[in-house]
């Protein structure tokens, strides 16, 4: 029983990280049909942010994490917008090619990280208030994991409010739902694209700060999470936050239990097969736009 609960906590924890990584992807994919393969490297940028703050600016651990969340959001978002303006906006009608171009960007960013920070992994010092754990129902819950869950909850809540109430959020929704109609109504989809990319990339940066708390970081830190996050986006459905949330926790749980039942590699294979089987029943993911159009 305790091990079952333990795995449930594990699943929630993995799910919340997956959600944090995937949610930025969902925005850009849903609105622009762009799969940003460099998303993992934006996570990497976020992960190095608290490291730089601690290492080069000598900030205290706690401050570097909290300040890091904002700086990572801005920096990763900026890199994302630069990529969108410089490359992706030139190839709007070739979504699959944008995937490959962003892959090229990811290769360059990875090598750049190796050149700047060196090949060995580095560690971010966790602040003292994140050290230790609380035991509940016999399950050990490290503070870092709980912090990440809380962070995810705040971000998801904030995003929902932003999308529902804020004018820019409404514009994003409009463009996601029907690009042409939004343009006809006087929105500039390309300007909204930039906002979306900034937001999506910035969230990757925030995810990076979170990730830096639970392991050492190197140039590959993002690519370790990114494929699982892609699966979440696929299962969740085209750019819907609700679907992504459910999918992230479902896959996180499945992953935790499958790994516990067999081992890490078989566990991943089980998750993958489950995704394929799931798509047999809901090829468009959990939550999808209903349209009368033949092609989506």
């Amino acid at each position: 029983m305790e091990t079952l609960l333990e795995q449930a906590f594990n699943g929630l924890s993995v799910g919340s990280i997956l959600l944090l990584v995937a949610i930025g992807l969902t925005f850009t994919f849903g609105q622009m049909n762009v799969i940003n393969m460099a998303h993992g490297e934006l996570i990497m940028i976020g992960a190095y942010t608290p490291y730089v703050l601690q290492h080069d600016f000598g900030l205290a651990a706690g401050l570097s994490i909290l300040l890091g969340l904002f700086i990572a959001f801005i920096v990763a978002g900026g890199v994302g917008v630069a990529m969108e303006r410089g490359l992706l906006s030139r190839m709007v009608d070739r979504p699959l090619d944008t995937l490959l171009v962003t892959f090229g960007v990811s290769l360059i960013l990875q090598q750049a990280a190796r050149d700047i920070f060196g090949a060995p992994n580095v560690d971010v010092v966790a602040p003292s208030w994140l050290k230790g754990s609380v035991t509940l129902l016999g399950v050990i819950m490290p503070y870092t994991r709980l912090f990440i869950m809380a962070l995810v909850a705040v971000i998801v809540g904030g995003l929902s409010v932003f999308m529902a109430r804020h004018a820019e959020g409404r514009r994003m929704r409009a463009v996601t739902q029907n690009r042409d109609l939004a343009a006809v109504s006087g929105l500039s989809p390309r300007r909204v694209d930039a906002t979306t990319f900034f937001l999506g990339s910035g969230l990757a940066g925030v995810a990076g700060v979170a990730v830096s708390l639970i392991g050492s970081i190197g140039s590959q830190v993002g690519s370790g999470y990114i494929i699982d996050a892609f699966l979440v986006v696929i299962v969740g459905g085209l750019g819907r936050m609700k679907g992504t949330i459910i999918a992230a926790f479902a896959l996180g749980m499945l992953n935790a239990y499958a790994e516990f039942w067999k081992n890490a590699s078989i566990g991943k294979a089980i998750v993958f097969m489950a995704v394929i089987v799931f798509l047999q029943f809901r090829p468009n993911g959990l939550v999808s736009f209903r349209t009368r159009g033949l092609t989506s």
Binding site: I35, L99, L231, V233, F272
Partner: peptide, 19 residues
């Protein structure tokens, strides 16, 4: 199809490698 297919094939590579 499209990006969905691309990402699924990418996942097969990860699974294969892990196995």
């Amino acid at each position: 199809r499209g990006a969905y297919f691309a990402l699924l094939t990418q996942a097969t590579a990860l699974v294969f490698w892990l196995l």
